[in-house]
Design a protein around this nucleic acid. Structure first.
Length: 498
RNA sequence: GGUCACGUGGCCGAGCGGUUAGGCAAAGGUCUGCAAAACCUUGUACAGCGGUUCGAAUCCGCUCGUGACCUCCA
């Protein structure tokens, strides 16, 4: 359990042992959503992935400052119009009203998926001065030039002098020269196609704009993350994360801006999550290959046969590694839903286990401890949730066997049983961030149902004792029809929601 | 076109040179009044063709296929 944490660093393209800059503390920046439309599932997968990473770092005992921004400035469209203001005009709303609406929706969805809130959630529009300062610093260092009120990053000069441009995304400046398309707006203002705007002069009708030394305008595409990560995490910090599709140009340019402004590289470890696919293609809001979280929950979509609960979906995501693509399919979701229930049911059974009287030297006792250690070891290996889950499921088999009598509790020590119970609780709820959906529905405000079920099952037991199979089966079938499953065990009857 | 990934048993999905991944589904068995649940057993998979190696799903090459990035995108 005291193993080191290793993680895959996109910069080196290999696993590295994680060493925080300051022992005990971790600074992590994750690129957040652009709030000009509803979140979609792909976003959710990424943020669930980083939620696991955040939770596991906390579990390891780190004090983590988790910064995840809200992009409410918007980015340039091909026609040069700011996305935020475009949405505003279409809906006759203030730009900030649009941003707020979708920010709220994003927060609601993050809550539904049971992700922890970041420590700081800075907004791009709230950090215009910091961004202007960074533009100025880059200009002062000679890595940007002003052109017609806009300021562009001098990518070619930066690449030649620093020699690091392209390190993250594996690109070469020569290739950029050859491949860059020339259909960008203000192309003529740029010295080189690979140059990118860090300050844009606003067109007169542009709604979102601010004063700056160069023009009334707005910050460039990639600047906010550089400015805000530095403000809250410093010139050097530990982890920077985001979706794979942000690697280039967004993250590459972020690094360039960091180095270009203060000669500091920003994050030491770059983590990238892979894409959520549907029908084998990237899920994307721009090309319509998408299913909204709501549609997935309600089943109101041609892509699914039924609705899936948020935790079933979260579990589905945890069954693959964050660096692998994950193909959303109805069959996959169905399997995940059952697996999730099996895991939670195993936890419930485990809580009721008592009477462990074995020794730590018993083979079963040792096996259980090894599986527990294994689950943590898998998490330490680049947050391998699918493998950790595999160990947990092997433990579920042991747990059920202990309950059913196929394995003896006399071969498990009290300490190990307690460790197992603690581990399951910690793993399922704290690390994997799952919620007990059954418990939420069956207990708490549902004391009445508990009482009724107790009565009904008592009556059924009486009937069974009298070999009145007609009555007992009628009760069972009626409960089944009502969505309640009766489970006859060796030591009594239990029930659960189907 | 350039760059980079990936192609695993019925489905999903781990795997990073030698050992059972795991989940779902399926078959047989145990348990049960009958079921359900649970437990046990079973599948001998790694796109194709070569190569390296005592040994390859795992390394190398080629072929085919799919995808991502190169343009806003998690």
């Amino acid at each position: 359990m005291n193993q080191e944490l290793s993680l895959h660093n996109s910069l080196s393209r290999q696993k590295e042992v994680f060493k925080p800059l300051k022992p005990g503390f971790v600074g992590m920046y994750v690129c957040g959503p652009t709030v000009y439309s509803d979140v979609h599932l792909g976003n959710c997968r990424t943020f669930v992935s980083f939620d696991i990473i955040y939770r596991y770092l906390l579990h390891l005992g780190y004090t983590v400052r988790y910064v995840r921004n809200i992009t409410d400035v918007g980015h340039l469209l091909d026609d040069g119009e700011d996305r935020m203001s475009k949405g505003a005009r279409a809906n006759q709303l203030e730009p900030m009203e649009v941003a707020q609406k979708y920010t709220n929706g994003f927060h609601d969805m993050m809550r539904i998926f049971n992700t922890l809130s970041p420590s700081i959630e800075p907004r791009a529009t709230g950090h215009i001065p910091e961004q202007i300062e960074m533009v100025q610093a880059i200009l002062d260092n000679g890595y940007a030039y002003e052109s017609n009120g806009s300021v562009y990053f001098d990518t070619l000069k930066f690449a030649q002098e620093k020699g690091i441009y392209g390190d993250l995304s594996g690109r070469k400046i020569e290739e950029l020269i050859a491949e860059s398309r020339d259909n960008l707006k203000n192309q003529d203002e740029k010295r080189h196609p690979a140059d990118f705007a860090i300050w844009m002069k606003a067109a007169p009708e542009h709604l979102m704009h601010w004063n700056s030394p160069w023009s009334v305008g707005f910050p460039g595409w990639h600047l906010e993350c550089s400015a805000m990560s530095r403000k809250y995490l410093g010139e050097h910090f530990d982890i920077h994360g985001g979706g794979n599709d942000l690697k280039f140009p967004h993250h590459e340019n972020e690094i360039a801006q960091n180095v270009g402004s203060c000669n500091c590289a920003g994050a030491g470890y770059w983590l990238h999550t892979n894409m959520l696919l549907m029908n084998g293609r990237k899920m994307s809001k721009s090309d319509g290959n998408t299913i909204s979280p709501e549609e997935l929950f309600t089943g109101d979509s041609v892509h699914v046969s039924k609705g899936y609960s948020p935790m079933a979906v979260r579990f589905f995501m945890l069954q693959s590694h964050y660096r692998s693509t994950l193909d959303l399919t109805d069959e996959g979701l169905l399997a995940a839903e059952k697996g999730y229930k099996r895991l939670l049911e195993g936890f419930h059974v485990l809580l009721d286990l008592t009477g462990a009287t074995g020794q730590a030297t018993d083979a079963l006792d040792q096996e259980i401890n090894q599986l527990i250690d294994g689950a943590f070891a898998e998490m330490n290996d680049d947050f391998n949730t699918p493998k950790a889950l595999a160990r947990l499921f092997e433990l579920v088999s042991r747990i059920n066997s202990l309950k059913g009598g196929q394995l003896p509790l006399t071969a498990v020590s009290p300490a190990t049983l307690e460790r197992l119970q603690t581990t399951f609780r910690v793993f399922i709820f704290d690390i994997l961030g799952l919620l007990d959906e059954d418990a939420a529905g069956a207990s708490g405000n549902n004391q009445a149902l508990e009482g009724v079920m107790q009565l009904v099952l008592d009556m059924r037991q009486t009937a069974r004792a009298n070999k009145d199979w007609g009555t007992s089966d009628k009760i069972r079938d009626a409960l089944n029809a009502a969505g309640i499953v009766v489970k006859d065990g060796k030591e009594g009857v239990s029930w659960g929601l189907a």
